[in-house]
Amino acid sequence: MVETIINVEHVTMKFNLMEEKVDTLKEYVVKLIKGKLFYNEFIALHDISFTIDRGDIFGFIGFNGAGKSTMLKILAEVLKPTQGRVTVKGSIAPLIEVGAGFDPELTAKENIFLNGAILGHSKKFLEKHFDAILDFAALRDFVNVPVKNFSSGMYARLGFAIATEVRPDILIVDEVLSVGDYKFQEKCEKRIQEMINNGTTVILVSHDIGMIRRLCNKVVWLDHGRIKDIGDTERICRMYER
């Protein structure tokens, strides 16, 4: 029997965008008191509904500004929707932004324990898997280097290695893999496939339609915050490419 692991019901996400630049906290407070702060309402997502079943490899496609990353942040509980409801069953490992969950002043070693703790891993678990994380990220030579000196690709390698060392129920991956070189992308795809084979549900955002085709069994096409189409991967990708 198919089990629904994520249920998104009529989700709308609104943001208030300031009309003018405020340079200091004092200026902000003064304008707030005088009622001179003006906003434009921006609706990033409009009445979004879909379900994801356990074991799905669920892709999001769409042009920049379509609402893909906003949707992932809501699924990862980084953002709370303005309207609607999201129900998630199981543990989540989110890889949404390069460097998220890292302290740039700390070393790679220290950030493995920091980021791992944020993801819910115990110190004992991280000590046991420390070498495996370093080896997958290929950062053993940089273990004692503050990550503020890392490239975006090194950030991505370390974040992916930590998040996927344990097998979560749900793995959420935004465009962070696009900053790595092709060898690392191949390595990540192989690990994602291993996780899929072991029953992990994967939610993937990528402009790489080839990757979406290789990995996903279902796809949502977002356009200006609305669902343009949803369903079979090949059918949706063909329509998107047209």
Rank of each mutant, 00 (worst) to 15 (best):
V2Q: 14
T4R: 14
N7D: 13
V8Y: 09
H10T: 07
N16R: 13
M18I: 03
E19C: 01
L25E: 08
E27T: 03
L32N: 14
K36V: 00
K36A: 03
L37F: 08
Y39W: 06
D47C: 07
D53L: 00
D53I: 00
D56L: 02
D56Y: 07
G65M: 12
G67L: 04
K68L: 03
K73N: 12
I74T: 03
V78N: 09
T82R: 09
T87Y: 10
V88Y: 13
V88E: 08
A93C: 06
G99Q: 08
G99L: 05
G101S: 11
G101V: 02
D103L: 03
E105Q: 13
E105L: 12
L106F: 15
E110Y: 10
N111G: 09
G116C: 07
L119S: 02
K123M: 01
K124L: 00
E127G: 05
F130G: 09
F142Q: 09
N144D: 15
V145I: 11
V145E: 15
V147E: 10
K148L: 03
F150W: 13
T164Y: 04
E165F: 02
D169C: 01
I170N: 10
E175M: 05
N197K: 15
H207G: 06
I212W: 03
V219Q: 07
I230E: 11
G231H: 10
C237E: 05
C237Q: 05
R238L: 05
R238M: 05
